[in-house]
Nucleic acid binder design. Structure first.
Lengths: 204, 204, 204, 204
DNA sequence: GATGAATGAGTTTTCATTCAT
DNA sequence: GATGAATGAAAACTCATTCAT
C-alpha cells in the first residue's frame, strides 16, 4: 500500500501529521495554561503533555511567546466582519454576536486569565492584540455610523468612540470576570453588562 | 551622641529610618515596574535603584510577590468608605470619586499594566485584590440601595449587581486603557465610560 | 526516457549528480563559514543554502566535522610535490609556489579564520592537518637537502628543521593575517615574510 | 575575635575572599581548557572544578566569553614596554624578551591551543587581541626606528612593517607549535625561528 | 537517494532567596 | 539592621543526528 502512494499523497500525509502535531501542542498548551497560568507553564511541560520531544516544540513555534501570539487567535472576532452583510437594527445583532463570542471563554476562566497574563507579559502579543482591536474598530465603525443615522443609537458621541467603548466593554468584562474568584457564568455577566451599555448608548 | 538619645528617641529614629527605607524600596519598584514590567524587574535592580543592598530587600518584604501585594494598595479605594458620610445624590459623588481615583494612574499606563501583570501572575496578589473588591462592594452596597430607594437609579437590578458593575466598569476601563498603545488620557476615557454607565443605570 | 539510458549512462548520470550535490554542499559551507565562522554555521543553514534537505547532508558527509576535514583539502599543497620535477635553484621556485598558494585565500580572511577555527575545535581536522604537514615535509626534505648541497641555503641547520620552518612561516603568516582586523592583502604580507625567511636561510 | 574586626577589616576579608574565588575559577578554567579545549569546556564543569556553584561563575564573569577575554591577559607583554628603558642593541634584548615570554606557554601546548581556539571563536577576544597587538606595535616602533638608525637592522623596510613581522613571527610560531602533535619544547622552536628572523632583518 | 519531522542531550544564563559577616 | 557573595533550581532554546516515508 505504501508504495501505491504517489508523492503527493505522501506529502499530504506528512502535511496532515504536521497539522496534527501542531494542534496537539496547542491543545496541550491551552490545557496547561488554564491549569497553571502562562508564566508558570514551561515549554517542557507542554511538550510532555503533547507527547512530543522538547525540541519539537521549536519546530513549530519559534518561541514560547510565538505560541502565545498564535493562541491569541482565540480573541479574533471574524463575526464582527460578518455583521456588515446582515440587515436590520444594530443593537440586537450585537447582542447576538456577544452571545456567540462568549461561548468560547465560558467555563474557561483560568485560561482566559492566562491569556491576558501572557498578553500583558509579552510585548508581541500585546501589539498583536492592539492590531486586532484596530481592525475590529474599523469594521464596526460604518455600522455604528449607520445606526446613528437610523436614530438607533445616540448621535452626540463620535462613532469611533462608541466603537471603542463597545470593545472596551467586551474585553473589560472578560478580563475582570477572569480575575474574579467565583464561578459566575460569563454569559450572565456579559449580558448584564451589555444591557447597561446598550441603555447607555441609546438615543436621548 | 547616639547614646544621649533616650530609648524612645532612638526607637523613633530607627522607626523613621525603617519607614524611609521601606518607602525608598517601594518607590524604586514602582519606577522600575513602569519601565520594565513586573516579571522583568529583578529584586537586584530594585535595591540598586533604592540604594540599598540586595539582602536588605528581604528585611522589608518576605518575597518579591509580597512587595507586589503591598503595592496593590494603590488600588485601595478608601474614598469609597467616605462616601457613606456625605449627603446628597450618589451619582455625582461617584463621578467625583472616580475623578479622584483616576489621578493615581494617569500618566502611568506602563505601571498600571505592570501591576495588572503582576496581579495576574501572582495568586496572592489576585486574592488580595478580590478581597479588596469584596470590601468595596460591601461598602458601596447600602449607598446603592439608598439611591435605588431615592429613585436615583434603576430598581430592576439587584443592588449587589449594580455595585459589581460599577467596579467592573472602573477596573475594566483601567486595564483595557493600560493595554492600549496610544497615550489617550485616562481621565477622558474614564469620564466617557462612566457617562455611559450612569446613563445605563438611570431609572426607567 | 530514463529507461532508454543504458545502465552505464544512468550510472554516470547518477555519479555526476552526486558529485554536483556534494560540490554544492561544500560551496554552501564555504560561503557560510566565511560569513559566520565554523561553529556558528549550522548544518541546516548549509543545506538550505545548498538547496537540499537537511538529511541529504548526511548522505554525503558522516558529520559536520567530516565536512570540515573534507574542506581542509584547501590547505593541501600538491604543488609541493611537483617541485621535485622542476630543475633550477629552489628558492625562486618556492617563491613562485607560495605566490600560487596565496591566491586561494586572498580576499577570504573570514573563511581562512573559520577553517582554522574549525581545525582547532575538531580533533580529527587537526590530526588530518598534521598528517598533511608530515607529507609535505617529506616531499620538501630532499629538495632542501639538495639545495644545501648546492650551496643555495645554509648548511648549519638540519634540512628537516628548515622544511619545518618553511611550513611554519607559511601557515603562521596565514593564521595571523586571518586574525587581524584590517584588509591588507595576503600576498603583500606573505611576500614580505618570505623575503625575510629566505634571507634568514641564506648561506653564511 | 570576629567582633574585634573593624568594618574595614571585614571588607578586606571579603575582598580577599572574592579575589580568591575569582582566582579559583580562572585556574579551574585554565586547567579544563588545556584538557578539553575552549568550546568543549562548559561553565558547569569549570564551576565544579572550582568548587563553587554554577551561578557563582556569573557573579564574576558576565559570560564564558568574558572569562576568555580575561584569560587573554596571558598574552599581554608588558615586558615590551620595559624595553624602552634599557640601553644597548635591540636584537639581544629582544632575544631575551622572547625567551622570557616563552616560559609562560612552555609545557602548555593544549592550553595555548585552547586560547587560540577561543580567540578565533569569540569576536570580543579577537578584538581584544588586536588592540593588544596595536599597543605592542606602538611600543616597539621607536625602538625599531632607533635600531635602524644605529645600523643594527636593515633600513630598507619601514619600521612598522618590521615590528609587525616580529609579532607575527612570535604569535605565528606560538599557534603553529600549539597545533602540532609532538612535544617539542616551545623554547627550541622559538629560538630557531627568531634566529632566522634576526638574520632576515640584519642589515645588508 | 532525498526528504524533513522528530529527537533530546546539552548549554548558557537568570534570579529569588539565604546567610555568614 | 545592612551587606553582598554564594547558591542552585529552573528555563528557554540549539542543533547535530536519526529514520520513517
Amino acid at each position: 500500500m505504501t508504495e501505491r502512494l504517489t508523492t503527493e499523497d505522501a506529502d499530504m500525509n506528512r502535511e496532515l501529521k504536521k497539522e496534527q502535531t501542531r494542534a496537539r501542542i496547542k491543545e496541550a498548551a491551552l490545557a496547561l495554561f488554564s491549569e497553571q497560568g502562562y508564566e508558570t507553564t514551561t515549554v517542557e511541560a507542554i511538550t510532555k503533555q503533547a507527547g512530543v520531544a522538547k525540541g519539537t516544540f521549536f519546530n513549530y513555534f519559534s518561541s514560547k511567546d510565538d505560541l502565545l501570539c498564535d493562541l491569541q487567535g482565540i480573541f479574533a472576532m471574524n463575526e464582527v466582519g460578518k455583521l456588515k452583510g446582515t440587515p436590520g437594527p444594530l443593537v440586537p445583532r450585537l447582542q447576538l454576536l456577544v452571545f456567540e463570542l462568549v461561548k468560547r471563554f465560558e467555563m474557561n476562566k483560568p485560561l482566559t486569565r492566562a491569556l491576558f497574563q501572557g498578553m500583558l507579559a509579552t510585548d508581541a502579543a500585546l501589539e498583536l492584540h492592539n492590531r486586532l482591536l484596530a481592525d475590529l474598530s474599523e469594521a464596526l465603525l460604518p455600522l455604528v455610523l449607520q445606526a446613528q443615522e437610523n436614530g438607533e443609537i445616540r448621535k452626540d458621541m463620535p462613532p469611533a468612540m462608541l466603537a471603542q467603548q463597545a470593545f472596551q466593554t467586551y474585553f473589560g468584562t472578560l478580563v475582570i470576570w477572569a480575575m474574579e474568584a467565583g464561578d459566575e457564568p460569563l454569559a450572565t455577566r456579559m449580558t448584564m453588562t451589555f444591557e447597561l451599555f446598550f441603555k447607555g448608548i441609546a438615543p436621548q
